[in-house]
């Protein structure tokens, strides 16, 4: 299993002013695995994700993604790592001046391999990705015409454009009704099957964690307080852990 390690976070620290958000965090993700980071709002879950793709620089620690030290590598190497990571933002982060088709085209037309493709081939990839998230009918719509759940699905389709080996889901079910949340959870599992990706899912939604996780870590005050499978953690005697399952 160690050979399949694609993400290795070691002794990560991050503070904002006086506030310590991440305090000596260690984390690993293996190829093809769905790892859920469960934690209350404001416990630094999104900060970890942003450090992994170097949107934020941690104060100390190391992060290795696909064997590259992302905190100390050059811009070119960083971009190579980033093309192998899909990132689904909390609100989808769709470019609101572009249609869904243009949103999907955007990363593809700036990618070394995909920009060489003919328009017809690129369209086929876009349509395939939109079909896989059930959004082909919205291909020429603007993000403002979509519901919250549709925006997340479109964001997911965009993150699939560069055929990532790993997808980061930032609160994939937050702000959605139970029916749409279930659909997104199913989609996360289906994407893993179809695209053979590893997933790092951060959430405070216990239903999402149960449905999508192979393994879970529970985060509290910037530290991991428990790690294991959902059913193992559910029966954990610690008061701090039990609170998440109430």
């Amino acid at each position: 299993m160690e050979n399949n390690r694609i993400l290795d976070v070691h002794n990560l620290h991050k503070s904002f002013g006086e506030k310590k958000v991440i305090d000596g965090l260690d984390l690993a993700l293996y190829s093809g695995e769905n790892l859920v980071i469960l934690g209350k709002s404001g416990t630094g879950k999104s900060v970890i994700m942003k450090c992994i793709v170097r949107l934020l620089k941690p104060d100390a620690g190391s992060i290795n993604v696909f064997g590259t030290d992302v905190l100390n590598c050059g811009e070119k190497e960083l971009n190579e790592v980033r093309t192998r990571i899909g990132y689904l933002f909390q609100e989808g982060a769709l470019y609101d001046s572009m249609t869904i088709r243009e949103n999907l085209e955007f990363p593809a037309k700036r990618d070394k391999k995909l920009r060489k493709l003919a328009d017809k081939e690129l369209n086929e990839i876009i349509e395939k990705n939109l079909e896989s998230v059930g959004l082909i009918d919205a291909i020429d719509k603007l993000p403002s015409e979509l519901s919250g759940g549709m925006k997340k699905r479109a964001g997911l389709a965009r993150s699939l454009m560069l055929s990532p080996d790993m997808i980061i889901y930032d609160e994939p079910t937050t702000g959605l009704d139970p029916y749409t949340s279930d659909a997104i959870n199913d989609l996360i599992l289906r994407i893993r099957e179809s695209y053979n990706t590893a997933s790092l899912i951060i959430t405070h939604d216990i239903k999402c964690a149960k449905r999508t996780s192979d393994r879970m870590v529970i985060l509290s005050d910037g530290k991991i307080i428990a790690e294991g499978k959902f059913d193992e953690l559910k029966t954990d005697p610690s008061e701090q852990v039990r609170l998440f399952f109430v």
């Binding site: 793709v53 980033r82 093309t83 933002f89 609100e91 955007f106 700036r110 965009r158 560069l162």
Partner: peptide, 16 residues
Amino acid sequence: SMRVTEQIDAMEVSAT
């Protein structure tokens, strides 16, 4: 507005 809605971050993580 693009900064607030994480659109700029989305460009960055897609290596653009």
